[in-house]
Design a protein around this nucleic acid. Structure first.
Length: 393
DNA sequence: AATCCACAGGAAGTGCTGGGCG
DNA sequence: CGCCCAGCACTTCCTGTGGATT
């Protein structure tokens, strides 16, 4: 027995191909965007300062992958004077951290904290001027940078401070509002060139999935129906390729556990449900305590037969808003919370409905007066479990 | 018809927080 | 550094609505 036998899988050849960080050899459906970026960057290889670029696009539209591809292409030029650096601003979220990372990349040494910002700045400038070099810095998820104006200012000022060589940036953001947050000066300097990444449509997603399937799954494991369904679902959900790949990964894992050796649309459908539940669970556990208690009250009300006031509408059971509020106040007190006022409870109900966690209907006729009837959008036992896990620790 | 009930949702007020400014 | 003010989360109070009750 050797190590190769240990992770012998009936389904997967190489799971990591399905990871969002994987960069395929051939980039699909993004030739235009890549070309635009290359055109923007191209001047460096002639010794001129390239343009700053800002890239927009929703999640899973290939922004990161395309910019990583750009770095690959730049490396192919084997020009020692040009250095491309990719960094994710979730990690490097301040001006200081970005420059610290720059220095450690340029000098190839472990960088400690404690240096002054001015020193880091000088180090970067020296490195550029020493041999008239160029730095292209790719700032992924740039909206996470806390002192963005300071960062952009320092980066552009660096350009003014040096005679030869240059420093330019490519910012990536998935929030359109990002530009509004910028000050006038940084806005004009970072938006010299803008590229928008459109979402993928269903057939493009299919192409992307097929490209990765041949590398990640064993031969004939995935049925065509599974691919169709996964790309159709992802196309509906904002054309997010990351989501589509995640669906495939999950359904592969499901098939592995079932030992059927095949991934069909059944597994994909199951994977979609799981993904949805994960999303809901994440959403619920990030809610304020009282909103969770409201949900919990509704879940318990649904489980409790003694709350007899229920109405059926198309097979779905709805509960009276007032009943649920009463129940909520009891539960709150039991857990040592001061219950929230009925007025604010109504606002919570609206918010929860907007988030798609509950659904409500108006009682036109039926019992006295007007009331809102409520029910959970998810299975109440699951909601109960989630809240018990997060709230009761 | 008048009154009540059970709720919806607007207005104004309160206590706290964090950010900008002199 | 303190000060002030805006904004938020929430309460209290109030008016409206429409079927139910008397």
């Amino acid at each position: 027995m050797d190590f190769n036998e240990i992770d012998e899988s009936a389904i997967f050849k190489n799971k990591s191909v399905l990871s969002p960080h994987y960069v395929p050899q051939e980039l699909l459906y993004r030739e235009e965007e890549l070309k635009k970026m290359m055109v923007g960057v191209a001047p460096v290889f002639k010794g001129f300062k390239p343009k700053n670029i800002l890239i927009y696009g929703k999640t899973g539209t290939g922004k990161s992958i395309t910019s990583k591809k750009l770095l690959e292409k730049m490396n192919d030029m084997k020009d020692a004077r040009v250095k491309g650096i990719y960094l994710n601003c979730r990690v490097y979220d301040t001006r200081y951290k970005v420059f610290q990372k720059l220095v450690s990349e340029l000098k190839n040494e472990f960088s400690k904290t404690g240096y002054s910002f001015a020193l880091l700045y000088e180090t970067v400038l020296d490195w550029i001027e020493e041999k008239e070099r160029f730095i292209i810095i790719i700032l992924d998820e740039i909206d996470f940078v806390k002192d963005i104006d300071a960062l952009v200012y320092s980066l552009t000022r660096a350009n003014d401070d040096i005679q030869k060589g240059g420093l330019s940036m490519i910012g990536i953001s998935n929030k359109i509002q990002f530009k509004q947050k910028l000050g006038e000066r940084s806005k004009s300097s970072i938006c010299e060139e803008e590229i928008v990444f459109q979402t993928y449509n269903s057939s493009q997603l299919q192409g992307i999935l097929n490209q990765r399937i041949s590398l990640s799954f064993k031969e004939g494991v995935i049925t065509p129906g599974a691919v169709n369904l996964a790309s159709a679902i992802a196309a509906r959900e904002n054309g997010d390729a990351r989501y589509a790949l995640n669906l495939l990964l999950r359904s592969g894992e499901l098939a592995e556990r079932k030992k059927t050796g095949k991934v069909t649309d059944k597994e994909v459908e199951e994977a979609r449900k799981m993904a949805e539940e994960d999303k809901a669970s994440e959403l619920i556990s990030s809610l304020p305590a009282h909103q969770q208690l409201v949900l919990y009250a509704l879940a318990l009300t649904s489980a409790d037969v003694s709350y007899k006031k229920l109405v059926e509408d198309g097979g779905e059971k709805y509960y009276f808003s007032g009943e649920v509020y009463d129940h909520y106040t009891k539960i709150s007190k039991k857990f040592g919370f001061e219950p929230i006022s009925a007025r604010w409870y109504r606002e919570y109900i609206h918010e929860l409905e907007e988030m798609g966690l509950i659904s409500s209907i108006h009682s036109g006729s039926g019992v006295r007066g007007q009331t809102t009837l409520l029910r959970l959008a998810l299975e109440n036992s699951k909601v109960k479990k989630i809240i018990e896990k997060t709230l009761m620790k």
